[in-house]
C-alpha cells in the first residue's frame, strides 16, 4: 500500500472510531431519557413525577376489563406481575387489545387512577398459525398446564 493510501486509511479509521465512541456515549447518556414506558411498580415507587404525562406499560389483568354500556369508556387493570394499576380510557381500542395482552397507555395519574388519552397494544415477536395455537391450547388443557402464551416452533 502506498503512503498516501495508508495515510487516508488511518485518518478515516480514526474519524470512524471517534464517531463510534461519540455515538456509544450518546446512547448511554440517553438511556435514561429515552425510556419509552414505566411499569406500575415504578409508578408506585414514585419514580415518575406527579402530574407528569407518561406511558404506562404492562399486561391487561385477566377479568379486569369493564366496558361502560352507554359510552366508549373502558376501565381495566394493568399489571407487571408485582403491582397493579387501575386505568381509565375513553375511545376506540386497537384490535389486539384484550385480556393478558401487553399494552402501553399514555396519560397521567388522577386520584390514584391512571387516566389514559391513548392506549396502544404491544405485539410480541411470535407468529403462530391458528391450527398450531389451537392444538397447543388443547394439549395444555389436557395436561392441566396453566395457560401460557404459545410460541412458534
Amino acid at each position: 500500500m502506498n503512503p498516501t493510501r495508508k495515510r487516508r486509511l488511518v485518518v478515516i479509521s480514526l474519524i470512524l472510531g471517534a464517531v463510534g465512541i461519540a455515538a456509544t456515549l450518546t446512547v448511554f447518556a440517553l438511556q435514561q431519557n429515552i425510556t419509552y414506558l414505566h411499569t406500575p411498580v415504578e409508578v408506585l415507587a414514585g419514580k415518575v413525577p406527579a402530574d407528569a404525562r407518561f406511558r404506562l406499560g404492562g399486561m391487561v389483568k385477566a377479568g379486569s376489563i369493564q366496558r361502560a354500556g352507554d359510552s366508549l369508556k373502558t376501565g381495566f387493570t394493568v399489571t407487571d406481575g408485582d403491582a397493579d394499576m387501575a386505568v381509565e380510557y375513553t375511545g376506540i381500542l386497537p384490535d389486539l387489545f384484550r385480556e393478558k395482552q401487553s399494552v402501553i397507555a399514555t396519560g397521567r395519574m388522577e386520584n390514584g387512577r391512571f387516566v389514559a388519552s391513548e392506549v396502544l397494544a404491544k405485539h410480541d415477536e411470535n407468529y403462530v398459525p391458528r391450527d398450531v395455537a389451537e392444538a397447543m391450547a388443547n394439549a395444555h388443557k389436557k395436561h392441566d398446564i396453566p395457560e401460557k402464551k404459545p410460541t412458534a416452533q
Binding site: Q31, K122, E125, Y127
Partner: peptide, 10 residues
C-alpha cells in the same frame, strides 16, 4: 436496549 412499542426480532 430500550423499552419500545416495536417488538423484538422474530
Amino acid at each position: 436496549w430500550w423499552n419500545t412499542l416495536h417488538q423484538g426480532s422474530t
